[in-house]
Amino acid sequence: MSDYETIKFEQTGPIARITLNRPDAANGMNDTMTRELADVARRCDTAATKVVVLTGSGRFFCAGGDLKSFASAPDRGLHIKGVANDLHRAISSFSRMGAVLIVAVNGTAAGAGFSIAVTGDLVLAAESASFTMAYTKVGLSPDGSSSYFLPRLIGITKTKELMLTNRVLSAQVAAEWGLVTEVVPDEELAARADALAEKMAATCSGSNETVKALMLSTFNSGLEEQMEFESRLIAERANSADGREGVDAFMAKRKPKFS
C-alpha cells in the first residue's frame, strides 16, 4: 500500500488496484483526492501495468465533488477549476494508457462519480448501485469527461435527460443503456472484479492499448481515415513480439504466452 491520504493503491504484478477511500464523506472528491488520483493514474501508465481496478470504499462509489470543501474555499471558482483539472488529468491518463481500466461501481455514483465510472473500459456494477448526474441540482455543470463520453455511449437525447433532470438510473437500467458492462450481486462484486482483472492480465496489453486508441479516435475520423489508422496499427501489431507469438501459437494450436 502506498501513502496516499484519500485513496488506497496496491500493485500486484501487472494488476493495480485503486480504491477511493473517503467513506465518511461518501468518497467525495476534494482537491486532495483528485490530485492523488491524477498522480496514481500517471503511475499506472507504464508497460508494467496491464490492468487497473478502480472502486470505492464503504457504501458509495463516489458521490461527486465534495461540496463542503468547495464552499469553504476563498475563491470557489478557482478552487473547483483546480479540482476539475486534476480529475481531468487522471481521466486522460486512464483513457490513453495501455492498461485496461475496470471500474467496479460498489454503490451510488453521482456527479463526478458517475462521470469517472463510465470512463472505464469495462464497468461492473453491484445490483444496488445507482447513477445520477446531480450537477444542476446545486447550480453547477457537468465535468469529469461526461459531456464527451456520455453522448458517445448513449446519444445526445439521453445525455440531456440525465444532465437536465438528474434522473437516477439503477444498475440494471444503466446496463440496458450501455453504460455498464455487467451487473453482479453486491457480495460478488469484488470477486468478479478480481477474476476479470486476472483474465485481462493474461491478454496482450499491446492489443488492448490499440483497441483503446481506435475507440478514442472513431468519432473524430472519417471512414477512410479510420481504416488507415486500423491498417497501420494492425501492421504494427503483426510485427510486434506479441503479435508474432499470438499468430504462431494459433498455428501451433497452443495457448499464447504474451509478454
Rank of each mutant, 00 (worst) to 15 (best):
G77Q: 13
A90R: 03
L179Y: 04
A104V: 09
V118C: 06
S231C: 08
K199E: 01
V83S: 00
H88Q: 14
A195H: 04
L189G: 01
T181F: 08
A126I: 04
G58D: 14
K212G: 05
G77R: 12
T132C: 14
T12M: 06
T181M: 08
D186K: 07
T181N: 07
K257L: 14
V103I: 09
M97F: 10
Y148F: 15
L54W: 01
I102G: 14
G155Y: 11
K158E: 15
E188S: 10
G65A: 08
L101M: 13
S205H: 05
E236H: 04
D242H: 07
P23F: 10
A238N: 00
D66N: 15
L140F: 12
A109E: 09
R244Q: 14
A110S: 12
M33G: 00
P185A: 09
T181W: 06
V53F: 01
G13H: 06
V180C: 11
T218H: 09
A171D: 04
A26E: 02
N220P: 07
L37I: 05
G178S: 11
Y148I: 10
F70R: 07
A129T: 03
V211W: 01
L87Q: 09
M215C: 12
T119W: 03
R167A: 15
N27M: 01
D242R: 08
A47L: 09
D121M: 11
E209Q: 14
E245K: 02
P74W: 08
R42Y: 05
V211P: 00
T32H: 04
T159S: 15
